[in-house]
């Protein structure tokens, strides 16, 4: 069984929402990523979303754009991302990993080669931001063949027809983009998001996660009440620009810990 399925099953039985931090592999230096991944798990991450850096991250806001630029400048490549995942799996065999990125590097590596290597590295799911279901048949089939869950985005603009179609193709969980915008945009509106998540649940049994616009513990706790997973990216990645490298892992883990406690608290302010 794919680790994602097991993970969400367990969380459900505990009536908890998953906390999914996003970091860009290799940001700000390749050697940070592995210890950072372990630290995030220790601080309460249930699933790790790992960004595969790309030169032209069209759907990302400035924080994650700069993370990609730093990682590439530090010599990060798709092959090295996959190598770090292998290293992670040497000591952690339980936390699901989802790779997130853009199509071109995968296309240049080759779908089959990518899926084979990712599977061998212990990756559990793949989210390609610029590969909507209309274009993804071939890639999705290859992923499923390699026991990798194709994760798809849903957005405020998705019509019922699209939601149905996407839910049929998706595995693992659905990623609901909480607002019209790029990653790291202004805060989301919880009530509006709650409505759309309910609508999505009519179409699928899969867990529904919410991301984009979750920047503090309070919002994380609110979103945890209405969804199966809280995805936090820019608010976490920001630390790379605000604290020194020696403090980085500690600061990011501490921030994640705050979110975890807020999400697990019985009441929300």
């Amino acid at each position: 069984m794919n680790r994602l399925t097991g993970c969400f099953k367990q969380l459900k039985s505990q009536h908890r929402s998953a906390l999914i931090p996003f970091i860009t592999a290799g940001d700000p230096q390749p050697h940070i990523t592995l210890p950072l991944m372990h630290a995030l798990v220790a601080a309460g991450a249930d699933v790790l979303e790992i960004g595969m850096p790309f030169s032209d991250p069209m759907a990302d806001g400035p924080v994650i754009q700069r993370a990609s630029e730093r990682a590439l400048a530090a010599g990060m490549t798709l092959t090295r991302v996959l190598a770090i995942m292998t290293e992670f799996r040497a000591t952690n065999t339980t936390t699901p990993i989802v790779l997130m990125g853009y199509l071109n590097p995968i296309e240049i590596m080759g779908y089959e080669q990518f899926a084979k290597t990712a599977q061998a590295a212990g990756v559990d799911g793949v989210l390609v931001v610029d590969l909507p279901p209309e274009e993804s048949d071939e890639f999705t089939n290859i992923l499923i063949h390699h026991d990798l869950a194709p994760i798809f985005l849903l957005a405020p603009t998705s019509t019922p027809g699209r939601i149905e179609k996407i839910c049929q193709q998706a595995r693992g969980y659905l990623y609901y983009v909480s607002l019209k915008g790029v990653t790291g945009s202004a805060n989301l509106e919880v009530d509006t998001v709650a409505q759309k998540v309910e609508e999505i649940r009519h179409h699928t049994q899969l867990p529904v996660g919410v991301g984009f616009g979750i920047s503090n513990a309070k919002t994380a706790a609110q979103v945890a009440k209405i969804s199966d997973a809280v995805i936090v990216g820019s608010a976490l990645v920001k630390y790379v620009e605000t604290v020194s490298e020696s403090q980085l892992i500690g600061s990011m883990a501490a921030f994640l810990g705050e979110l975890r406690s807020a999400m697990d608290a019985k009441t929300v302010d």
Binding site: D130, T157, I166
Partner: peptide, 20 residues
């Protein structure tokens, strides 16, 4: 109908822009 010129073209964007 899906914007393909042979194997080229198409619509490779994030979900938010698909409906617009």
């Amino acid at each position: 109908s899906r914007g393909h010129f042979g194997r080229f073209g198409g619509r490779f964007v994030g979900e938010t822009l698909m409906q617009p």
